[in-house]
Amino acid sequence: MLKILIGRILTTIPALIGVVVVSFLLTRVLPGDTAAYFAGPAATPQAIEEVRKKLGLDRPLPEQFASYVRDLSHGNLGQSLTTGQPVLSDIKARLPASAELTLFGLVLSLLIAVPLGIVAAVRQGSMIDHACRAIVTAGVSLPVFFTGLLLVYVFYFILQISPAPLGRLDVFASAPAEITGFYLLDSLLARDGATFRASFSQLLLPGVTLAIFALAPIARITRASMLSVLSMDFVRTARASGLSRRKVIMTYAFRNALLPVVTTLGMVFSFLLGANVLVEKVFAWPGIGSYAVEALIASDFAPVQGFVLAMAILYIVLNLLIDLSYRLIDPRMRASS
């Protein structure tokens, strides 16, 4: 098992190299002259030339790449012009907020979408099936920032049961002592019910927004793969040998249908991490997405590049986890490695 784990971790290396190369290229094709940009708008040609030297932009590309990789290995992603902090520490500080929101949205949508997909497939043609298809088609058409705004309008402005969409906690509450960085978990660990409720009520709307967004692809693939598994020969065999309907659906069909669902989770994560940026902007959520958006507006490029790289690495790790869990479910994958 350890050998497989190491082997699988090794296979992420090409992806990592690709990500580093692409992010390096992105830093070198900044609009206009990179040196002029870093020297500032009022710089003289001499000053620009100096900056160019200092940044090593006068050296050949492979050399620049080597020093870029060296910097990365030291965790140096550059300075943010807006916050004045190293990009890495900014990202570290804001990552838990994004992670909490994304995971909350994902778990919520899995809890709804997977059972919905199963029931829709098992009762093909029923009302639930039609509802599932309608939800799926409408769901993939919803711009995530639009859903967020609608929810804010309905639950904050009209019904006034939701707090103002301004961050993880309202101004009167204080953050729990940091253990995991997830407010829900930290407040539970600190047995602080008030903070838990406050952070939960803030998390609910953005989390639901993300969940609605992720619902459609998960329900769609669950339904489709369940349908295809239900028409397979071994399900017919299971029925012909008199296994109960429950056993056929759960042990035989669902476990097989899970495989494509797990594979699709990679794609869902890709969408979620992107949608996260938009949702953070709508709800002024202090995560790395809104950090990147603020930096973009201020033409502060180092944080944006750091953000892209961090997201890519996070995504590679998530894919690794998905792949390993796939192996746990499917013995054929275990044998082939």
């Binding site: 397979m232 020969d233 071994f234 017919r236 065999t237 012909a240 040998s241 008199g242 097989n256 054929r332």
Partner: peptide, 18 residues
């Protein structure tokens, strides 16, 4: 399965692969 059983063409597909 208890009183009447059936076997099918393509035996490999007739068994739960996992």
């Amino acid at each position: 399965g208890r009183e009447m059983s059936m076997i099918f063409q393509n035996p490999r597909a007739a068994l739960n692969p996992i």
